[in-house]
Amino acid sequence: MTGPFSNRAADPDDLLPEGLEDMLPHRSAAVSRATRSVLAAMDGRGYDRVRPPMLEFERSLAGRMDGVATRRMFRFVDPASLRTLALRSDITPQIGRIAATGLADAPRPLRLCYGGEVATIRADQLDPARQRLQLGAELIGSDTVEAASEIVTLAIEALAAAGANGVSVDFTLPDLVDRLAEKAMPLEPGAKDAVRRELDAKDAGGLAEIPGGEAYLPLLYAAGDFDAAIERLSALDAGGALASRIGGLRAIAARLGDRTRLTLDPSERHGFEYQSWFGFTVYAEGARGALGRGGTYRLSGSGETATGFSLYMEPMLEALGEGPVGRDLLFLPLGHDREAAARLRSEGWRTLSALDESDEAAVLGCTHRLTAEGPRPI
């Protein structure tokens, strides 16, 4: 791998697998700043941080929540237990396990947050990365309108704290087809998956070819700016099958007020494998794709309801831009005043000590030099 510090061509043995990359100092510093800001916003709202392990038994990761696909996980046999281990592809199921085990007796609703690396065998079509930094918050023990409003508000505040501008939120109803197919728009056995697929693809022709699918065609046009889209969705809901969900969306939107742009795409399911009645996607100016997703879901085993969201650092960095090039760096010459250097570090200075007379402050990237009078610009 080549970079700003080397003109050497990359040796084939040094190449990284597809979808993986080194994070060099400038980008790594930007990630650290954004991570601290996001986690601080969550902490300020009363969310306690937990740190689950990178590896777990495959059965635990796959069984905690519906829709978790183990085929996306790296799996291997644990030589100690001879059971199959999996490298996490999503931290959310781990938070569910913690809530159901170590924190089973903690008061509800339980507010937890996290930050850590995840990895997948194959990259998403829209995202070539196979390793990502996932940050998120989960409110366990409630999936009410109040809980959903708090979670969406926290996602917006966390992104704003990191420096993102122009944040927008797109609402969806992940169980829309299941709900309508119960009575209002019945479907033949096996047709629900086909209807979901064509709605995801926004394919009106394909939808019309499915027996019973033509009834779902108007849903393709009940999308866009929230106020207009929710009115179109309400007009389609003659039987009232979606009345409680529409009322919930209206209430969440009212609580958010005009702090961000809101849109609605009720049939969107990409990235909502385990969410139930409510889901949302967050975007920001400067990022090509979604910064994260969230919504309501149910934990398998314990049966608890929960509401949460996950943010991903790579698209977040796109939204944040390059940021500061670097912080001031103080060069400490040989024989410098060590007590003065320690005091300056306690005040927030970064220091770099000379190891040899030939060390040059400017060459090493220093912006200041320590003198008898204190730091002086170079």
Results as ranks from 00 to 15, higher is better:
G3C: 01
A10S: 12
P12Q: 02
L15D: 09
P17Q: 06
G19E: 06
M23I: 14
L24F: 12
T35H: 10
T35E: 15
T35R: 15
R36S: 14
S37T: 03
M42H: 15
M42F: 15
G44N: 06
R45F: 10
G46D: 07
G46Y: 04
D48V: 10
L55W: 07
L55G: 04
E56Q: 12
G63Y: 06
A69N: 14
S81T: 15
R83M: 11
R83A: 12
L85M: 14
A86M: 08
A86P: 08
L87D: 05
G96A: 14
A99K: 02
T101C: 01
T101P: 01
P107E: 08
P107V: 07
L112V: 12
G115N: 01
E117A: 12
V118P: 03
V118S: 04
D124T: 04
Q131S: 13
G141C: 04
D143P: 01
V145H: 01
A147T: 08
E150Y: 01
L159K: 02
L159R: 08
A160I: 00
A161L: 05
V169T: 11
T172N: 15
L180M: 11
A181C: 09
L187E: 11
G190F: 08
D193A: 15
A194R: 10
A194D: 05
V195M: 04
R197S: 15
R197D: 14
A201S: 11
K202D: 11
G205W: 02
G205A: 14
G206H: 12
L207W: 09
A208N: 10
E214A: 15
R232Q: 13
L233E: 03
L236C: 14
L236N: 10
D237I: 06
A238P: 00
A243F: 02
G247Y: 08
A254V: 01
L256V: 07
D258A: 14
R259M: 06
R259L: 00
L264W: 05
P266W: 02
E268S: 09
W277R: 12
F278V: 03
A284H: 08
G286W: 04
R288S: 13
G289S: 13
L291Y: 09
G295Q: 05
S302L: 04
G308P: 09
Y312S: 02
M313K: 07
E318T: 08
A319H: 05
E322N: 09
D328G: 15
L329Y: 09
A342E: 14
W349I: 08
T371V: 00
I378E: 11
